[in-house]
Simulated assay, not measured.
Amino acid sequence: MELTTLWFVVIAFLWIGYFVLEGFDFGVGILLRVLGRDEPERRAVVTTIGPVWDGNEVWLIVAGGATFAAFPEWYATLFSGFYLPLFAILVALILRGVALEYRGKRDDLLWRGRMDTLITVGSVIPALLWGITFANLVRGVPLDADHEYVGSLGDLLSPFALLGGVAFTAVFVAHGAIFLALRTTDELRQRANRLAARTGLVAAVLVVAFLLWALNLRGDTASAVVAGAAVVALVAALVANKYRREGWAFTGTALAIALAVTALFVAMFPAVMPSTDPATTLTAVEAASTPYTLKVLTWIAGIFTPLVMLYQGWTYWVFRKRVTVEPVAVA
């Protein structure tokens, strides 16, 4: 495999890891006020992602850094053309992170209510905007001969892109609901299980519509097969959730997200920034760094990526037990 293709696969893998892991804690954040009916329940909901949410965001940082190093022109075109939505994502993630860290710093229900609002908003906005961003990558955006974005913000808000935003958000909500059913107990677990069933059906309809539209715009046999497998995995997750097999249900939604994102990257390749004018499409070869740079990056990634994955896997193993709803102590 050529290094250019290898690094396209690596970056796709990093985005897949990010959406699978950050996807469920986006869903948990969105559902914080929906499933958490009082302070003890909301504290339990936040506790389920407390030890892992910041580690999940590392995948985004590494994906951005790898894109900058391996495909600098892709990075430049993407981050300049999508500046406003990516900036909004960054602000939302900062506010969400601050709220998660500072929620428990004051024993004040009003304070915690405000932090809960920031967590919810900071989860909805990135989920929606990531869907819009990736939908535009598949659809193609206006680029000139120098591969610079020449469209407007309105060009990024096509019906297909908006469907992508809603589909991503719905899948993350279902993924988060199943994660909460997996990690909580008693009444909170039961409500999460029921909500996962309802949101999962909505997500399945939206995902099927989005993938069919995406394949119609830019797809081939390989991407169609992968997309079909994603739908099967999502349906299997809903069946497992119905029988209260939360572990298998979570595996199913994780696999569905991974396969759906894979289908988008397969449909896009060898382009990294498809253009509405095929003549100005930016390909992986055109955007890549020098062979020497890619070779050095390959050695670095080969050494450190397994170590990071082992550490993060160990973190999930340590904090694998269910979280119980503890009553608030009365002084």
Results as ranks from 00 to 15, higher is better:
M1F: 11
M1R: 11
T4Q: 14
T4Y: 08
T5V: 14
W7P: 13
F8V: 10
V10A: 12
V20I: 11
D25K: 03
G27L: 00
V28M: 04
L31F: 02
L31C: 05
R37H: 15
E39Q: 12
E41R: 15
V45D: 07
A63K: 11
A63W: 09
F68E: 09
F68G: 07
A70D: 02
A76S: 07
L78N: 07
S80Q: 07
F87L: 15
V91W: 01
L93C: 01
G104M: 07
D107V: 12
T117M: 14
T117E: 12
T120P: 03
V121M: 03
I125D: 07
A127E: 06
G131C: 00
I132H: 01
L137R: 05
L137G: 04
V138F: 08
V138K: 03
L143Y: 12
S152I: 08
L153E: 05
L153K: 05
L162S: 03
A170L: 09
V171H: 10
A174P: 05
H175K: 08
R189N: 07
T199L: 09
G200E: 01
G200C: 07
A203E: 04
V207N: 11
A214C: 06
R218Y: 10
G219I: 03
A222Q: 08
A224Q: 06
A227F: 00
A229E: 11
V231T: 04
V232A: 12
A233Y: 12
V235M: 10
K242M: 12
E246C: 00
I257H: 02
I257D: 02
M268E: 08
P270K: 09
M273Y: 09
L282R: 14
A288K: 00
T290V: 12
P291D: 05
K295Y: 12
G302T: 03
F304D: 08
L307M: 15
R320E: 09
R320F: 09
K321M: 06
K321D: 14
K321V: 08
V323M: 08
T324P: 09
P327Q: 11
A331V: 14
